[in-house]
């Protein structure tokens, strides 16, 4: 049951920011409500004002960033379903649309938004983990102006971001991988929300075509692990183990990278599992994600299916 509140429906970001600034802690930005209304029903949040951001121009748009013409900007009020179905997303960041297809369930995807997902910083959400491998940055708007923050700086911990109370999350901008990048997103868990998630992307050297080392060399690796530490993290040590390797050597390297990733997470005992189990599972699923990505690099789709596991 919800307590009464006043609903504001600004049509410009300026108006919305002014409302948030004026109402302070009494107000909450509201888009799909799949997180916010849930927390309000559970009594964990009790805002007296909701500022609906869905009518703000541009908040529902997906487009290419004008400046670069290459980066992909997703408005805060874009639903998971819209991401899943966007031809532009599929063309520029195909894994993002595949992952959107597996967020929560169909009803949440129809209503829940990208901005809400990121702003709540639920440690068991999918998007932030994946977006870390896409050099995501978020746009924050306030009466003081606009700032852009790397996603990694924006998400500070469980349900904690560096958004000030008068700031509004306007959009997230992703840097699509170069062509010749093969990637996979794998999540595992028995609960409603995943126990862990791994995003892995391997960029192969695309300059020499069919040459001996061409298209076969991993020139850049990106690995992010979510749900296990206090926030999703890029696993630099794991990435380093993969860079400048032949894809043919990936099996051995994947094991080393997986172990490096496992060493780099900071799990705690909780309902989702014991810390040592989760650490071990990070190794298992980083390995799996890399092998699936490598198979895709070879143009193959792994037929392996794992229980309680979603592969996107």
């Amino acid at each position: 049951m919800l307590r009464p509140f006043t609903l504001h429906r600004p049509e410009t970001a300026e108006e919305a920011c002014a409302l948030l600034a004026g109402l302070g802690e009494e107000a909450a930005a509201y888009a799909g409500g799949t997180e916010l209304l849930l927390m309000m029903k559970l009594g964990l949040l009790r805002p007296r004002h909701l500022v609906d951001v869905k009518r703000i121009r541009g908040f529902g748009d997906i487009g290419l960033e004008p400046l670069s013409g290459r980066r992909l900007t997703i408005g805060a009020a874009v639903t998971h379903r819209a991401v899943e179905q966007s031809a532009l997303v599929r063309a520029r960041c195909p894994l993002v649309s595949s992952v959107a297809r597996h967020v929560a369930n169909v009803r949440v995807r129809n209503v829940g938004t990208v901005g809400g997902n990121l702003a709540f910083a639920d440690p068991h959400s999918d998007l932030a983990t994946l977006f870390l491998t896409l050099d995501a940055s978020v746009e924050l708007l306030s009466p003081r102006g606009r700032r852009e923050l790397p996603l990694d700086d924006f998400v500070r911990g469980p349900w904690e971001t560096s958004r000030a109370s008068d700031e509004l999350l306007g959009s997230v901008t992703l840097t699509p991988w170069a062509s010749d990048t093969a990637a996979a997103y794998v999540k595992f868990g028995v609960h409603e929300r995943p126990t862990l998630a791994v995003a892995a992307a391997l960029r192969l050297d695309g300059t020499t075509g069919a040459g001996r080392n061409g298209r076969d060399r991993i020139v850049e690796a990106r690995v992010a692990v979510g749900c296990v530490s206090l926030k999703p993290v890029r696993m630099a040590a794991a990435e380093a183990r993969l860079t400048d390797l032949s894809i043919g050597d990936l099996d051995d390297a994947a094991r080393a990278a997986a172990d490096a990733a496992a060493a780099g997470v900071d799990p705690a005992d909780d309902l989702y599992g014991s810390a040592d189990y989760k650490r071990e599972m990070v190794a298992v699923f980083v390995g799996r994600a890399l092998r699936i990505a490598a198979a895709r690099a070879r143009g193959a789709e792994s037929a392996a299916r794992f229980p309680h596991t979603v592969v996107a």
């Binding site: 028995v190 229980p307 596991t309």
Partner: peptide, 11 residues
């Protein structure tokens, strides 16, 4: 049944 030996997940 089958089991994913690496994760312990039984199907």
């Amino acid at each position: 049944v089958s089991v994913d030996e690496e994760t312990g997940a039984v199907r």
